[in-house]
Design a binder for these strands. Sequence first.
DNA 1: TTTACATATTCCAATCTAGGCATATATTGA
DNA 2: TCAATATATGCCTAGATTGGAATATGTAAA
Lengths: 116, 116
Amino acid sequence: MARAATTSDVFNAVAEPSRRALLDCLAHGELAVGALVDQTDLEQPSVSKHLRVLHAVGLVTSRRDGRQRFYRLEAQAMRPLHAWVRTFDRYFERQLERVKERAESTRREHPRKEPS
Amino acid sequence: MARAATTSDVFNAVAEPSRRALLDCLAHGELAVGALVDQTDLEQPSVSKHLRVLHAVGLVTSRRDGRQRFYRLEAQAMRPLHAWVRTFDRYFERQLERVKERAESTRREHPRKEPS
DNA sequence: TTTACATATTCCAATCTAGGCATATATTGA
DNA sequence: TCAATATATGCCTAGATTGGAATATGTAAA
């Protein structure tokens, strides 16, 4: 079996750095394809193809205005990714605590409250 | 050019559902390969191969104990992913606000504050 | 040493990819 | 209708993959 399609889910769609770059651009607001080409170092066909993938997983929607086509970020499509990553939030905290505790215990053995 | 290697970064590493499943298992604590095989519907060689990828990007570390090898989650390696996803937090909120505002404006017309 | 157990690696097949280039489609204006 | 602009699509190639089966490596016990 081969790798899953990039259009199979949001995880695969955002695995590509260029597509993340496009989403970063769109975070500031709706943009036409040409503007995205200008703001990245991608060729126009590449941008269109990446947008197609992003559209397939629902991360962007588009609207036509004359000959231009404007793309807009649809952040709610990022929800599964968001949710999964958040699952590990406690482990970030736990590690922070561990670091703090270790730093503490080198000086003396008393927990503190304030982080740096 | 082909797709980037799964070992190129955390984004590519977690794009694979099986690897996310493994990380989910390891979130409860250190586990040997055999336990991971039991807790998933993956064959042993697949588990080993996926763990190799996860190790390559720093998402797990391992420790040998007799003939077993225990793997442990290294959550801090998820930081780039975590940070990127958080970038879009405000858009989740903004969308919520938009929904609320729309509900408001259907009743009456009230001027908006400012975005962000 | 031999055997059994736990894990890792190799080879394979079938896909899916990203970029480059050419070209098709669509819309506007002369 | 014809030219110009904006975007999308098709074709190609090299490369990277996943799972499966077989096998190799490594450790422990008999």
